[in-house]
């Protein structure tokens, strides 16, 4: 291949690439301006684990069967119960959210759908100890720290 031919071929290829890039520039933008606008998560999204309160009974649906504690591959669920028979109730239901790998095995084995995923992912924290979610936190299914806005706070509509 002669030098001139190479130059022509190179220029043609460069033109094709740049033309494509310019055409893409005119297409619809894909960027999501995150803190201001948020993408909807799917209803199956593995966000935060929670024990939602049943509005009929005013309590969560946990029947203390220890299945989630047993299946958890990370051993991050800790359940303790006291009392016997019908009096039995939870004295401890903690999930170490920093150890959790969000695999969903606990949700799968739960016979009463007491433990579920909530599509909430904004859970970063300054202190690792706050990632230990107690029974109350899991019932509330809310983050322990307020959601950050950073320097984009003023741009919020």
């Amino acid at each position: 291949m002669s030098a001139a031919e190479r130059v022509i071929r190179g220029a043609a290829a460069l033109g094709t690439g740049l033309g494509l890039t310019f055409r893409t520039m005119l297409r619809r933008k894909v960027t999501v301006r995150y803190p201001v606008e948020k993408l909807p998560t799917s209803h199956r999204f593995h966000g935060l684990l929670s024990l939602p309160i049943d509005p009929e009974t005013g309590k969560d649906r946990c029947i203390i069967c220890f299945q989630c504690e047993r299946i958890c591959p990370d051993r991050c669920i800790h359940i303790e119960a006291e009392g016997k028979g019908k009096e039995r109730q939870l004295s401890r239901f903690d999930i170490e959210m920093d150890k959790c790998c969000y695999c969903g095995l606990c949700v799968e084995v739960c016979p009463t759908e007491a433990i579920v995923f909530v599509p909430h992912y904004e859970t970063s924290t300054y202190n690792r100890a706050r990632l230990l979610y107690s029974h109350d936190d899991l019932n509330r299914a809310a983050p322990k720290e307020p959601i950050a806005t950073g320097i984009v706070a003023r741009r919020r509509p």
């Binding site: 995150y34 803190p35 992912y121 904004e122 970063s124 924290t125 300054y126 720290e145 959601i147 950050a148 806005t149 950073g150 320097i151 984009v152």
Partner: peptide, 8 residues
């Protein structure tokens, strides 16, 4: 969100 928290 973590980076925004750090900014705060």
């Amino acid at each position: 969100e973590g980076i925004l928290k750090l900014q705060e």
